[in-house]
Amino acid sequence: MADATQAPKRHPRPISPHLSIYSPLVNMVMSIVHRLTGVALYFGTLLLAWWLIAAATGPAYFAFVNGLLTTLPGKLVLLGYTWALMHHMLGGMRHLIWDTGRGFNISTVNFLSWGTIIGSLGLTAAIWVGALKMKGLL
């Protein structure tokens, strides 16, 4: 009876295998990348807010911010931002399809997962090529 007042003795319980034990599968990698791009876009909103504030502040400060964004590191950040947005958007569409209960057989899952990464790279390239062509830089 005295035992009832004591905390039950803890035994080490078997734990289920976690990420590190599986070889990477495309849908698993895309799931991880979906979360990472989501977190990146979360902090990336600071960039959008900063750029909008610069535009609202005046020509001098806008020139400063625009100057930073058009340097090579700035362009690489914007390129990464574009890809993260496209990847997260396509990954999200994949989830919206799954939310309807469709697309759960293995071949469809793999197709949608490959579609997410290939589509995101394709859309990023299309946006940047389009932008450069529009400016007559390509």
Binding site: T45, L46, L48, A49, L52, I53, A55, A56
Partner: peptide
């Protein structure tokens, strides 16, 4: 983030 962007 929302309010600074909206303000701008």
């Amino acid at each position: 983030v929302a309010l600074t962007s909206v303000w701008a």
